[in-house]
């Protein structure tokens, strides 16, 4: 899933480790998310959005197929 984590993180001058500590995961987790290698859980996605004080859909682009009719 494409995301803007690295943009938001660098904007506030944080390292991956700093952000990881701030949201309670390992640095490797943040690295994998930023490189689109791992899609975070809903809980972690909400934590990241809360940390950067933005909406979750601003941070993540799920690129899903159209739903409904």
């Amino acid at each position: 899933m494409k995301n803007e984590i690295d943009v938001y993180r660098e904007r506030v001058g944080l390292s991956q480790g700093d952000l990881a500590t701030a949201v309670g995961v390992s640095r490797q987790t943040i690295n994998a998310i930023e490189r689109d290698r791992y899609d975070p859980s809903l809980a972690l996605a909400f934590k990241l959005a809360a940390y950067f004080e933005c909406r979750i859909e601003t941070l993540f682009d799920p690129d899903i197929e159209p739903v409904g009719e």
Binding site: G24, V25, S26, Q28, T29, A32, Y38, S41, L44
Partner: peptide, 9 residues
């Protein structure tokens, strides 16, 4: 939990 969600994945 001793492993975070990525490690569990």
């Amino acid at each position: 939990a001793l492993r975070d969600e990525f490690e569990k994945h």
